[in-house]
Amino acid sequence: MCAILKRHELGLPLTIFGQVLSLQTNDIRYFLSLLKGINFASLASMTITTTGLIITVEEARSVTATAWIFKDVFDDYTYTPPRPEPPASARSSASLRLTPSQRTQSDATTVLEIPLHSLLDCLSVFTGHGAASSAKKRGVRPIDGDHDDLNDQAGRLDAYFGGGAKRTGMSMYYAGEGHPLTISIADTSGNGPSARCEISTFDPEGMLDIALDYEQTVLKIILKSSWLREALSELDPKEYDKLTFVGNPLGAQASGDARPSRSSSKPIFRIMASGSVGSTEMDYTNDREVLETFECEDSVSFSYRFSHIRGALAALQTSDKSSLRIDNEGILSLQFLMEQPNRTKQGAMQGYIDFLCLPMEEGF
């Protein structure tokens, strides 16, 4: 439920006594871009930690998407673990989503389930870019312009949210189990309307646990997101239902054109889409301007449902760099670095989105 109360300044303190979570930001666009990047499921698991928020969704028991939103994203972030602490089983489930280094920093976490669409609608009440509009953006083509423009994160955020000089600030509070997620938003100029939203929270039911085996990674690629955007945005989901990633050792091909090619006999990296109309291939050669990092010791090929990969397009639209990893079981990890424009905190950690997808079974 989200209701506009009246026109007045937000005027809330940075922290409220007794709150498990209290945070504030003077510009919600970056926070919104991270949430919209995983907006393909109605319910999300939110894990509150001392280092920030971890918000996860899943689809078809085959793909998960996690937005890692570090506390540096906000102007103020305070997490006070509830007393008594959550049950051991809940803490253990939440810790599975943390990296080993983060797991050792603190075992204190609070896990809850929220309706993601409702949260997005409330945060977007003044912009009109809520859950429905962000879902439509998953299939949009890249913004016209050269690659330098595409890699201008501030420009992409302005384009994504419609631009303009006005900014919306937000305060978010959570008092603990059984309480709603309370959000207050307002125009930071102090002359616009404000709104107060209460989002229902639920006990977590547990998300699909997909884990990439970093010790058994058979293909690792880091590239500018614009190159991956260009490849995936050309594919029509009505025509293609399977996406195959093919990797070959560096010795299999010499350096060549920096742009994707459709003629190479054995490229180091190939994206192949197939469906009812046939197939198409996009090849990448060994050029550091395209593939900044490439690691592949043996030829590998794994296929995935294109409908699952399409869920990553929203995050791809506003990301700066992308990482593609596949382990020996075919588990695919797509990580998107969401660079924060106008950073003011020295050494602030950037948010990112991590997609994990199971491969298609052989014979499909």
Rank of each mutant, 00 (worst) to 15 (best):
L23Q: 11
Q24D: 09
T25A: 10
T25E: 03
N26F: 08
N26D: 14
D27E: 11
D27V: 13
D27K: 07
I28F: 12
I28Q: 13
R29T: 10
R29P: 05
Y30C: 09
Y30F: 06
Y30Q: 12
F31S: 06
L32E: 08
S33K: 05
S33C: 12
L34A: 15
L34N: 12
L35K: 01
K36R: 10
K36Y: 02
K36E: 11
K36H: 15
G37I: 00
I38C: 08
I38F: 06
N39T: 01
F40H: 05
A41Q: 10
A41T: 11
A41W: 08
A41Y: 09
L43K: 05
L43N: 09
L43F: 14
L43S: 05
A44S: 13
A44N: 04
S45Q: 14
M46A: 09
M46G: 07
T47P: 01
T47D: 06
T47F: 00
T47W: 02
I48D: 03
T49Y: 02
T51H: 09
G52M: 06
G52W: 02
L53D: 08
L53A: 00
I54F: 09
I55F: 00
I55W: 05
T56W: 03
V57N: 05
V57E: 04
V57T: 08
E58H: 07
E58F: 05
E58R: 04
E59M: 10
E59G: 08
E59K: 11
A60S: 13
A60F: 09
A60V: 11
R61V: 11
S62L: 14
S62T: 10
V63L: 14
V63Y: 03
T64N: 06
A65G: 12
A65K: 00
A65V: 07
T66S: 07
T66M: 03
T66D: 05
T66R: 06
A67R: 00
W68P: 00
I69N: 02
I69L: 14
F70N: 14
F70E: 14
K71A: 10
D72T: 13
D72W: 07
D72V: 11
V73F: 09
V73N: 09
V73P: 01
V73Q: 11
F74K: 08
D75N: 15
D75T: 07
D75V: 01
D76M: 04
D76Q: 13
Y77F: 15
T78M: 13
P82I: 08
P82F: 08
P82M: 07
R83E: 15
R83G: 01
P84E: 02
E85R: 15
E85D: 11
P86S: 00
P86A: 02
P86Y: 04
